[in-house]
């Protein structure tokens, strides 16, 4: 199920979509599934399941810590697919966000097959640019999956045109020049980037990196089609520690605040 379905709905409602991220296997595999379902229940329109990786160069300390905990808990690539299957069953479009080597290792075609069978919508690929993505693009097209590549404030217009032409589903605009992590102020770079991206494509444009509350979500929703939140969700679970119920409650509250934010704009 493509993420396009979520955007049809949010466009009809005249608002931005809320995209929520958590790594699979954090705090453990069933715990992540419960958490992601709680985020769906509280208002996420699209879910990103992170595939924990040993060398996450685009992630700040919060997501690194969660990924490390997941890996130390023994999470496998097949667990990520299992998580996707459980979340996609709620009817909310579910994509995987992953560094490239685990997919390369699993086998690109095999992963595309298994992801499609699990009901997954596609992949967000933070360290795979379309220039290197021929195998993935072919597999995604064969299995009707979304290809969500990133654009950045430093991207030239030529690269934005090339990258968006390779995307399906939506375009992921990284709002800051930096790694993932909640920030106290929203980026001044995001607006111009979204405008440049819109000039190149009719696809929805999601903005990620740094949003942590409803107020920031509302600011971003004023100019973007989707507000992507990751570290703030991870932080809510990390702060709750071993108290699973408190973690789920905090996730629910954060999701509702963000969901209200994307409706306020």
């Amino acid at each position: 199920m493509s993420t396009a379905r979520a955007f049809e709905k949010t466009r009809a409602e005249g608002r931005a979509a809320l995209v929520g991220y958590l790594p699979a296997g954090f705090p453990d595999v069933p715990g992540a599934i419960d958490a992601l379902k709680a985020m769906v229940d509280a208002g996420c329109d699209i879910i990103e399941v992170g595939l924990p990786y040993s060398d996450p160069v685009m992630d700040g300390p919060t997501i690194q810590a969660a990924a490390l905990q997941a890996l130390q808990g023994g999470v496998r690539t097949t667990d990520v697919l299992r998580t996707v299957e459980a979340v996609a069953a709620t009817g909310v479009p579910t994509v995987v966000m992953t560094y490239w080597n685990p997919i390369d290792r699993y086998g690109v075609e095999r992963f595309a097959t298994d992801l499609a069978n699990a009901g997954g919508a596609g992949l967000i690929t933070p360290d795979l640019i379309p220039d290197e993505g021929a195998d993935w693009i072919a597999a995604a097209d064969a299995h009707d999956l979304d290809k969500i590549f990133l654009v950045a404030p430093s991207s030239t217009d030529v690269r934005i045109a090339m990258t968006t032409a390779a995307c399906r589903g939506f375009v992921y605009a990284t709002a800051v020049m930096g790694v993932t992590g909640a920030r106290t102020t929203t980026s001044q770079l995001a607006g111009p980037l979204v405008a440049r991206t819109r000039a190149a494509t009719d696809l929805p444009v999601g903005v990620g990196l740094g949003v942590s509350n409803g107020e920031q979500a509302a600011e971003v929703a004023a100019y973007a089609d989707a507000v992507i939140v990751g570290s703030a969700f991870v932080r809510a679970l990390l702060d709750a520690g071993t108290d699973r119920a408190a973690g789920l409650k905090a996730l629910g509250e954060l999701t509702r605040d963000l969901a209200e934010g994307v409706r306020r704009a």
């Binding site: 490239w100 640019i129 950045a152 990284t174």
Partner: peptide, 18 residues
């Protein structure tokens, strides 16, 4: 493309490509 046979290339975040 920075390839030596099948090796090399650029598997990097878009933010650094420019």
């Amino acid at each position: 493309l920075g390839r030596f046979g099948q090796f090399g290339g650029r598997y990097m975040p878009e933010a650094l490509i420019t």
